[in-house]
Amino acid sequence: MTITERLTQDMKTAMKARDKKRLSTIRMVRASFQNEAIKLGKDSLSEEEEMTVLSREVKQRKDSLQEFKEAGREDLVEELEKEIEILQVYMPKQLTDEELEEIVQETIEEVGATSKADMGKVMSAVMPKIKGKADGSKVNKLVLQQLS
């Protein structure tokens, strides 16, 4: 079952259960999918494109969450945490720190990176392997740490 099919099914369930937060979050993601499809000039998105949009939505919320916490807006923090929780259901299982370290190490060896100057090569090789399964900033720190 594709992400879009799951979203449609869950949207119907949320409507029946009168779960307004889940319903609005799912509708927002579906709208993002449609906007991306229009932008790309397609009728529908591939599974990978859907994952990219979903990852972007989660990242935007996490960034906003951090800003709201710093500003002391607890009301908005709670809302975003609920949205992130709902969106995480559709994301692939996140990699553990050990799995992520292993992938980064293998990629460094594949690319033949030896210094921080090779950071871009390593990152561009790692990111497609872990798409949606780990946070980019976490990967960045790991790569930097292993190249030092």
Rank of each mutant, 00 (worst) to 15 (best):
residue 68 F to S: 12
residue 30 R to N: 01
residue 12 K to Q: 07
residue 44 S to K: 10
residue 63 D to M: 11
residue 54 L to P: 05
residue 22 R to P: 03
residue 11 M to T: 01
residue 68 F to T: 14
residue 36 E to L: 00
residue 66 Q to M: 09
residue 51 M to G: 03
residue 43 D to V: 13
residue 56 R to T: 07
residue 20 K to T: 06
residue 41 G to M: 08
residue 32 S to F: 00
residue 73 R to F: 11
residue 55 S to F: 07
residue 15 M to A: 03
residue 42 K to C: 04
residue 14 A to P: 02
residue 72 G to C: 12
residue 43 D to L: 09
residue 9 Q to R: 12
residue 56 R to G: 15
residue 14 A to V: 09
residue 68 F to I: 15
residue 60 Q to M: 07
residue 43 D to M: 09
residue 62 K to G: 14
residue 28 M to L: 10
residue 17 A to P: 00
residue 54 L to R: 08
residue 37 A to S: 05
residue 7 L to Y: 07
residue 22 R to I: 03
residue 57 E to C: 13
residue 56 R to C: 14
residue 9 Q to V: 03
residue 42 K to T: 06
residue 60 Q to C: 07
residue 40 L to S: 10
residue 41 G to C: 15
residue 33 F to K: 01
residue 14 A to R: 04
residue 19 D to S: 01
residue 26 I to Y: 10
residue 28 M to V: 02
residue 32 S to I: 01
residue 50 E to N: 00
residue 70 E to H: 06
residue 26 I to F: 08
residue 18 R to N: 15
residue 73 R to E: 13
residue 73 R to K: 13
residue 6 R to H: 06
residue 52 T to N: 08
residue 45 L to R: 02
residue 31 A to E: 14
residue 38 I to L: 12
residue 72 G to R: 15
residue 64 S to V: 08
residue 7 L to C: 14
residue 41 G to K: 07
residue 54 L to K: 14
residue 48 E to I: 14
residue 11 M to W: 04
residue 21 K to R: 10
residue 18 R to T: 06
residue 27 R to E: 06
residue 63 D to R: 10
residue 60 Q to T: 13
residue 64 S to D: 14
residue 59 K to F: 15
residue 52 T to S: 11
residue 16 K to L: 11
residue 66 Q to F: 14
residue 70 E to T: 06
residue 44 S to A: 09
residue 69 K to R: 12
residue 73 R to T: 08
residue 72 G to W: 15
residue 62 K to Y: 08
residue 46 S to Q: 08
residue 26 I to W: 05
residue 58 V to T: 08
residue 6 R to N: 05
residue 12 K to A: 14
residue 48 E to P: 05
residue 59 K to Y: 11
residue 13 T to M: 04
residue 62 K to P: 06
residue 10 D to K: 13
residue 31 A to Q: 13
residue 6 R to G: 01
residue 48 E to F: 05
residue 72 G to S: 06
residue 46 S to A: 08
residue 14 A to L: 03
residue 31 A to F: 12
residue 72 G to D: 06
residue 62 K to L: 09
residue 33 F to T: 01
residue 21 K to M: 11
residue 37 A to W: 00
residue 54 L to T: 09
residue 22 R to H: 03
residue 19 D to M: 00
residue 61 R to D: 13
residue 26 I to Q: 04
residue 15 M to N: 06
residue 27 R to P: 01
residue 20 K to F: 03
residue 66 Q to H: 13
residue 33 F to V: 01
residue 37 A to T: 02
residue 41 G to Q: 11
residue 16 K to I: 07
residue 53 V to T: 07
residue 19 D to K: 02
residue 26 I to N: 04
residue 51 M to Q: 12
residue 36 E to T: 00
residue 49 E to I: 11
residue 59 K to P: 07
residue 39 K to I: 11
residue 46 S to F: 02
residue 40 L to D: 13
residue 60 Q to W: 12
residue 70 E to K: 11
residue 47 E to Y: 02
residue 31 A to D: 13
residue 50 E to A: 02
residue 40 L to E: 15
residue 47 E to K: 02
residue 33 F to I: 00
residue 53 V to L: 04
residue 25 T to P: 03
residue 45 L to N: 02
residue 31 A to V: 10
residue 31 A to Y: 13
residue 61 R to Y: 15
residue 35 N to A: 12
residue 47 E to T: 01
residue 27 R to C: 04
residue 59 K to M: 05
residue 27 R to L: 13
residue 62 K to M: 15
residue 16 K to V: 14
residue 6 R to L: 09
residue 34 Q to H: 10
